[in-house]
């Protein structure tokens, strides 16, 4: 069976093969065939991607990127592979004789480059979570109302990040929207379970449910302190548990304090 994605490639190959046949017939008479062969292999190498030499006894090629798919070919030691595409932890590769398949990251060990230098394809661990940008989603509870929070963050130093958060709370008779700008401090950024503290300010709007009571919508500035725990699941995914205490600077005599618990995850990039 031929993967449909290779349809066009096969077409191209067929055209190429035909061209090659006529080309070879012409060139053979002029004793130029070896030169053409050389040209071909260098064009294979010059195509997009990274050429590696297999150092392990063999590497198996899968038909599609997934651990359960059929393995249809084994590339042997000292043969060359061209890596040209990735999806999650899978690499799409092409052998020198034109076989195209997928190889998992864990199989790409013991590689050499064409000059014989050992090549390293590191499997990133949670310790490589050094990306500056972060985007996440948290769900939780604020004074009995269910909430969700979308946030984006940027890491200025290993310890300090800035975050923009948008929280919406859905209570029985009201809707709350809170936008805030936070500063986040991680005292131990190299721990896998890393505690953090936040400090920030924002604006909270409370919309009373119009059907039930004709109450005024409120809009107050809020100051937020909080803390929590981040857990690096992989180098790209972080789980997060967070507690926030919002102090609403109301126009009334007393400021109002609102507590919020939430949990969720974020993706680093």
């Amino acid at each position: 069976m031929i993967p449909f994605s290779d349809f066009f490639r096969h077409r191209v190959c067929r055209v190429k093969a035909t061209a090659r046949f006529f080309g070879a017939a012409l060139l053979c008479s002029a004793w130029l065939h070896p030169a053409q062969a050389q040209e071909e292999s260098s064009s294979w190498r010059n195509r997009e991607g990274i050429v590696v030499v297999v150092g392990a006894p063999f590497i198996e090629l899968y038909v599609e990127p997934g651990r359960g798919y059929a393995r249809f070919h084994a590339v042997e030691k000292n043969e060359r592979l061209r890596l040209f595409k990735t999806r999650t932890d899978w690499f799409k590769v092409e052998t020198e004789d034109g076989k195209v398949g997928w190889v998992p990251r864990r199989a790409l060990v013991d590689l050499y480059d064409t000059e014989g230098y050992p090549l390293e394809l590191r499997t990133p661990s949670w310790k490589d979570a050094q990306y500056p940008w972060q985007m996440g989603l948290l769900a939780g509870e604020m004074e009995g109302a269910s909430t969700y929070t979308v946030y984006g963050g940027y890491r200025f130093t290993a310890n300090i990040s800035g975050e923009i958060k948008y929280t919406q709370a859905f209570g029985d008779t009201y809707n709350t929207k809170l936008g805030s700008l936070m500063l986040l401090h991680q005292p131990f950024p190299h721990w896998r379970a890393s505690p953090f503290f936040t400090l920030g300010a924002g604006n909270m709007k409370v919309f009373r449910d119009g059907v039930l009571v004709k109450a005024e919508d409120e809009k107050d500035n809020a100051v937020t302190v909080g803390g929590g725990l981040m857990f690096y699941i992989t180098h790209k995914v972080v789980a997060r548990l967070e507690y926030n205490q919002h102090t609403l600077l109301t126009t009334r005599d007393n400021n109002q304090e609102v507590e919020e618990w939430k949990a969720g995850f974020s993706v680093l990039f």
């Binding site: 997009e48 990735t86 690499f91 230098y117 390293e120």
Partner: peptide, 16 residues
């Protein structure tokens, strides 16, 4: 002492 070279994955087209 062989220099170990790193594969630069950014050169590959990722489809995630």
């Amino acid at each position: 002492d062989l220099e170990r070279r790193q594969i630069d994955e950014d050169k590959l087209d990722s489809e995630n």
